[in-house]
Amino acid sequence: MSVDKEVIKKIARLANLYYKEDELDTSARELNQILTYVEKLSKLDTGGINPTFQVSPIENIYRDDIVGKSLDLEHVMSNAPEKEGKFFTVPKIID
């Protein structure tokens, strides 16, 4: 288990994160340091142990199907970096 520059590039692509070429080595080094530390988990026997994805004993929560208050459209749109009327605009998706 060792993360190299190529793995960092792949993970960065999955995470939609831009890294400069000269940051890749540092990132690989730091990730390796942390992964080496967490390696101790593999030594622990967890056979027959269920995962705890969340601690509350709650299961599905259902709400009545009633119309509630919605956010103010103008206020919501005021945070958009680029917009046209009540639409968010993005760079062209399909060529």
Binding site: R13, N16, L17, Y18, V76, P81, F88, P91, K92, I93
Partner: peptide, 18 residues
């Protein structure tokens, strides 16, 4: 897209995200 800053020199959607 909906809120927060956006990089302005992106040429396509993926570049804009990253």
């Amino acid at each position: 897209v909906r809120y927060g800053s956006r990089a302005n020199k992106a040429e396509n959607l993926f570049q804009m995200y990253s």
